[in-house]
Design a binder for these strands. Structure first.
Lengths: 138, 138
DNA sequence: CATTTTGTTGTAATGATTATATTAATGTAA
DNA sequence: TTACATTAATATAATCATTACAACAAAATG
């Protein structure tokens, strides 16, 4: 994914006013590539910003998604995760260790039937299985 | 998808006791290819089975998913949908008319990087955009 | 039959998300 | 700077989907 050195500038250039909370939330997403839930962000950041509310996290993430600097990772139906990498990539979830891995795929060779004449704006590819580490360790 | 003529037999052969409610719920899923939510199933079937509870629908769908005769369609993060077609296929959602279309895709030519040595059990492909009809009608 | 197991239902609990109203911070013009 | 307007952040309460649990009903078993 793209290398972001200046978060306030990055937010500004995407039409987002860089408040302290917004910078911290984006910083968390950018540094932790763990596709966190709102809960995970809250747990981590409320230690640093004790007044931080979950509402602010929800508002901020919704804004980030709207401005296309964050995407929603919907690999499980009971948890919404977020990702600051907005480049086209897929997500693999290991059903053993629960870890989510990013992967790249080739949309050129992807042959799709039944959708002729459809305008395709967004493609999400999710794979579940067992990761290499878990396969070896048992 | 596979042609199912005898629902009680189909359920039995998948290790599910064919109760009246289960048969009706599967019948709804099989006949309506609209990838319904629990709410949609409830609205429709409570007219036929007035005592039907949502809990039963949740229980039944969870059982169906466990027994691999129904899959979850997770194309939106705020609604869980269900599909009795368990063959490998993708889902397209039109952001205008909200309709969900099935499509086929070719996993042979799908080149995936970064997942060498991973065991891939389940693949979900979701595409969002505008369907042919909505493109024409404005 | 009598007993055990399985299935269904209603109620209540949970947990994630959203709506609303208030307060705080920031930007702007005089 | 001061006053006003706008935007952001927060707390509280509301909503909505889902799950847990307990009671009841049905059916399978012996």
């Amino acid at each position: 994914m793209k290398n972001i050195t200046n978060i306030p500038y990055y937010l500004k250039s995407n039409d987002i006013k860089p408040s302290f909370q917004r910078m911290k939330i984006f910083d968390y997403l950018y540094k932790n590539k763990n596709h966190p839930t709102v809960e995970m962000i809250y747990k981590e950041l409320s230690g640093i910003i004790p007044t931080l509310s979950k509402t602010t996290i929800y508002n901020t993430l919704k804004l980030f998604v709207k401005k296309n600097i964050v995407i929603i990772v919907n690999i499980e139906d009971n948890e919404t995760r977020y990702d600051a990498d907005v480049s086209t990539h897929g997500h693999f979830k290991c059903i053993k260790c629960k870890e989510i891995y990013d992967f790249l795929f080739d949309t050129e060779n992807l042959k799709i039937q039944n959708l002729k004449g459809f305008q395709k704006d967004k493609i999400d590819l999710y794979i579940k299985g067992i990761c290499k580490e878990c396969l070896f360790s048992g």
